[in-house]
């Protein structure tokens, strides 16, 4: 079975690295890191991920803007994405990602099992 492709967008490189290592170890996913919000759309175009984990608060381009650009892009608008944020508390989200205003959020600090549950939910 072809590996699901996961794109991690967060300005904190150590965080995307840790997420990648944990996801890759399962052997089920191909993971790409992108630490510049402004390059996220371009990376997505090249990598064609099945799911994007998108940090909300990034210094150059916010996750919100990235999401908007993805949805306006004919090629990329069907890619699913899940927000990662420090501002939402765990109580407001669930392990598989909580819905707020129609969007899915995962609260930081995110656990590997939560990431996996979320991937399972969206891209099986």
């Amino acid at each position: 079975m072809e590996k699901k492709r996961i794109l991690l967008v967060d300005d904190e490189a150590s965080l995307t690295r840790m997420m990648r290592l944990n996801l890759e170890r399962t052997g089920k996913y191909e993971v790409r890191e992108e630490n510049m919000g402004s390059r996220a759309v371009e990376t997505a175009r090249q990598f064609r991920p099945d799911l994007i984990f998108l940090d909300v608060m990034m210094p150059d381009t916010s996750g919100d803007e990235v999401a908007a650009q993805l949805q306006e892009d004919e090629e990329l608008k069907n890619i699913k994405f899940v927000f990662l944020t420090a501002i939402v508390t765990k109580g407001e989200t669930e392990p598989g990602g909580g819905e707020i205003a129609g969007r899915t959020f995962l609260a930081k600090p995110v656990k590997t099992e939560e990431l996996l549950a979320c991937i399972e939910r969206f891209v099986g």
């Binding site: 965080l15 840790m18 930081k108």
Partner: peptide, 23 residues
């Protein structure tokens, strides 16, 4: 709100790093 944002990222790194190491 400020603290949460600044602290949660490092916490996430530690969390995931520890999970990686433990497995």
């Amino acid at each position: 709100a400020g603290v949460a944002h600044e602290v949660k990222n490092p916490l996430a790194v530690i969390q995931l790093g520890l999970e990686y190491l433990s497995a």
